[in-house]
Simulated scan of single mutants.
Amino acid sequence: MSKYSIAEFIRQTEQNDELKAKFELETPRMLEVNLKDFIWAKAGSMIAYNGKIKFEREGILEHGIGTLFKKAFTGEGASLMKATGEGALYLADKGKKIIILELHNETIFVNGNDLLAFEPTVKHEIKLMRKVAGMMAGGLFNIRCSGSGLIAITSHYEPLTLRVTPGKPVLTDPSATVAWSGNLTPEFQTDISFKTFIGRASGESIQLRFEGNGFVIVQPYEEVYFQQSQS
């Protein structure tokens, strides 16, 4: 059989029916969810499914008025959908690499644009990063995931995890920061004036400073969160 034949292509890329865990990587950039009840997923991330699955956009009062207020400021990046039913569900997000993590009564903060899916046993809460409000659009928020269960996060290309230890802070570009451990509270650090900021969209002048004991996950890619002024 030719290595370029259609049959060989199907053999190499077809669904692997042997995988039966709740979350599995069908490919490094495609998540398979073996659904038997429901999960939360990033709105618009469904690319295929089989079985009987119903999709509903997260209700505006699904998690209380506080979340509703926060969502008014975070835009589409934090929008979730509920996938309910039974079958195989396939999720992806702009070809980004997918990382599956299992929480055991733990907490992790994830950039609002990088949370792909999570089990209903994982509690989530939108957290606004209020400092430098008005300077960034879409990148001001993250999602606190806590409890026990599976979550899937995304990264442009291969992620890097940096250890944060006492006395050795880690500074990151907010646009390249994917997630961090729940015991860390980053602070914005800026070395620019309003005059130098106007007309620029450079993330290097604003950093997130992490101090304490934990970890930070970064990606080799800067997502654009800065709001361009228009005249």
Rank of each mutant, 00 (worst) to 15 (best):
P28I: 01
N50D: 15
T74W: 15
Q207C: 03
V178K: 00
I143R: 04
Y221K: 03
K97W: 14
F197R: 10
V178M: 02
L208P: 05
Y221C: 14
S45A: 12
L35S: 05
E125Y: 06
E211S: 06
A133M: 09
K22A: 09
F73A: 15
G199I: 00
P186T: 03
E222M: 08
R209N: 11
A83C: 11
G134F: 10
E56A: 14
N16T: 01
P220C: 14
T74Q: 12
I10P: 02
I126W: 03
L160D: 02
R29L: 02
F23A: 07
D93P: 03
A7Y: 05
K3Q: 08
T190L: 10
Q15C: 08
G59W: 07
V178D: 06
I98M: 13
K131Q: 13
Q12V: 03
P120G: 03
V224W: 10
P169N: 00
N213D: 14
F215S: 06
G199L: 10
H104T: 10
P220T: 04
F210K: 06
E222H: 06
K42L: 12
R130D: 14
P120K: 05
C145D: 03
G212Q: 09
K131R: 15
E58A: 15
S229Q: 08
F23H: 01
E56D: 11
K82I: 07
E102I: 09
S181A: 10
S5E: 00
K82W: 05
A21P: 00
S231T: 08
T172I: 00
H104Q: 14
K127C: 08
H156Q: 08
R144Y: 07
Y49L: 01
M135A: 07
T13I: 00
H63D: 12
S205M: 13
R144D: 07
S146G: 01
L101G: 06
L140S: 11
C145S: 02
I6L: 05
K42E: 10
F197C: 08
F38G: 04
A92V: 07
A117P: 10
S202I: 11
F197W: 12
I53Q: 13
G59H: 11
L25Y: 01
M1A: 15
T74F: 14
Q189H: 13
S148N: 14
L19I: 05
S193N: 11
T84P: 00
M30G: 01
